[in-house]
Design a protein around this nucleic acid. Structure first.
Length: 466
RNA sequence: GUCCCUAUCGUCUAGCCCGGCCCAGGACACCGGCCUUUCACGCCGGCGACGGGGGUUCGAAUCCCCCUGGGGACGCCA
């Protein structure tokens, strides 16, 4: 166990999205690799927007991805007493002050600043004010940011980053309703929880120079920072719903495997030479901040799909079968009275890219009635196929070893008896058994579909041809 | 607008720190071929990039500067 302490700190105002998942993954991987501690903290100081549903959704998504944490989840809403005390401490030290400016005044100042071409920061009106305008006037508490000199930190991904302190304004650390704000509680909690490396999204780079003085003001040690680049949509704007699914669990519903998403997310912005395929174990072994890229990356659904196809192709059929059941159920199909599902999976692994596609491909095995595709029937299940199908039926009825060799022999016999090669009558058999023109190999279909169902469907096809 | 970050194929990236092995390698996608009873898988091949301009150097994708492009932040959200 090393003393490395990392955290993922989502805000429960929605589901876990792709970007958050990657941040969580990087934290998880480094914690595992360095045998440190991975902490989950729920940042729910915005009581109005935080919901239990979101918390549950985030927890569920992390569990699905396999991102387990060593401590937590801690809830900031449970820690308001601590924050209150810390605000008071700053007030007592003269490092924070009450601000009585109203929302309207602030809006006006912001607008004016923006109009005059400057940064819309707070002008410090109340910084030197000694007392309230009115005895019971509502106030917020602001932190006295340094206004001179510069603040520099060495980002573990981006290198040294320097801000001039005159860019900073006095940010609000406690709202007029008494609740604390993000930039303050994140410092208190990261320090109190002993976090020594903060891996978070790029969008927080600008918050870092505002947070560093607070660590100092509260007598905390400043942690290290590593800001991972954003994930963009195809149009290079920040990834959002209009780019398609951004929720981790939406991918589960679309038939993606968690290892595919994990692999994809890891490779988006991180690399290990030319290697593309990584198991979670391998990621833990090989991950390092040094190999994380510095530029934002575009989310590429095609590559995710390719990875998913890879993991379906190489996955354990029994496991895939158990995952597939749910997707078959969505199609209204039950597997109890049909062929063995893992045998079915084996016939589909190379031709399905998602579990949704696999379920669709497996449907014909489980439908009680063959659903004939009209065009396929018209084209392939023609009267001249009566003879070879009848021959196949006879040979399969007589087949006493229902396995690959036995079935091959039955087909071979049809060719001998009718002089027709497989290419001539195979498509007709496929339509008879499947209903359409695409399916796994015809011999496999016969074997896996099973004797009774095959014979029944062949007889039904013969009836159709009469 | 101001500040911060960033820049290799359409996309993800290797190479950049420690200049020559790079007329730039891999992957996805795309195109062509092979395999094949279907659909796929697989295999082989192709297309395709160092944003621009200045330096430094015998030599720059690699070092420096400027420009441009892209992203982010600027909230009593996180």
């Amino acid at each position: 166990m090393s003393d490395l302490r990392l955290r993922f700190a989502p805000s429960p105002t929605g589901y876990l999205h792709i970007g958050g998942a990657r941040t969580a993954l990087f934290n998880y991987l480094l914690a595992k690799k360095e045998r440190g501690t991975f902490i989950l903290r729920i940042e729910d100081t915005d009581v109005a927007r935080s919901t239990q549903e979101s918390v549950d959704a985030i927890l569920q998504a992390m569990a699905w991805l396999g991102l387990s944490y060593d401590e937590g989840p801690y809830y900031q809403s449970d820690r308001f007493d601590l924050y209150k005390a810390k605000v008071q401490e700053l007030l007592d030290k003269g490092l924070a002050y009450r601000c009585y400016c109203t929302q309207e005044e602030l809006d006006a100042k912001r607008e004016a600043a923006l109009k005059s071409g400057g940064k819309p920061k707070y002008d410090g009106t109340c910084r030197e004010r000694s007392q309230a305008a009115a005895p019971n006037a509502p106030f917020v508490v602001r932190f006295k940011s340094p206004h001179e000199g510069e603040t520099t930190f060495v980002d573990r991904i981006k290198g040294p980053i320097t801000f001039r302190n005159e860019e900073l304004d006095d940010i609000i650390i406690q709202r007029s309703d008494g609740t604390p704000t993000y930039n303050f509680v994140v410092v208190v909690d990261d320090a109190e929880m002993g976090i020594n490396l903060i891996i978070r999204g790029d969008d927080h780079v600008n918050n870092t120079p505002r947070q560093i003085p607070m660590y100092t003001a509260l007598g905390y040690q400043i942690p290290e920072f590593a800001h991972v680049p954003m994930i963009l949509g195809a149009d290079k704007s920040r990834l959002s719903k209009r780019h398609g699914a951004t929720s981790v669990m939406a991918y589960q519903e679309q038939g993606y495997l968690p290892e595919a998403l994990v692999n994809y997310l890891a490779r988006l912005g991180w690399s290990h030479g030319d290697q593309e395929i990584f198991s979670m174990e391998e990621l833990i072994e090989k991950f390092s901040l040094e190999q994380v890229g510095r530029a934002a990356g575009v989310f590429n659904p095609d590559k995710l799909l390719w990875l998913n196809a890879h993991y379906i192709k190489t996955g354990d059929p029994v496991r895939l079968a158990s995952l597939l059941t749910e997707f078959l159920a969505k199609l209204g199909l039950a597997t109890e009275n049909g062929p063995d599902l893992s045998a079915v999976v084996k016939t589909l692994q190379e031709r399905a890219r998602t579990l949704v596609e696999m379920a669709e491909g497996a449907a014909f095995y489980y439908k009680s009635e063959v659903e004939y595709d009209e065009d396929a029937v018209a084209k392939f299940l023609t009267a001249d196929k009566h003879e070879p199908i009848a021959a196949l039926l006879r040979n399969l009825e007589a087949c006493d070893s229902w396995n690959h060799d036995g079935i091959m022999a039955a087909f071979q016999k049809v060719t001998e008896e009718t002089g027709l090669k497989l290419g001539k009558f195979g498509p007709a058999v496929r339509v008879a058994l499947v209903g359409g023109t695409t399916s796994p190999g015809i011999h496999e279909v016969v074997e896996v579909l099973g004797r009774e169902r095959v014979l029944t469907r062949l007889r039904q096809a013969l009836d159709l041809l009469r």
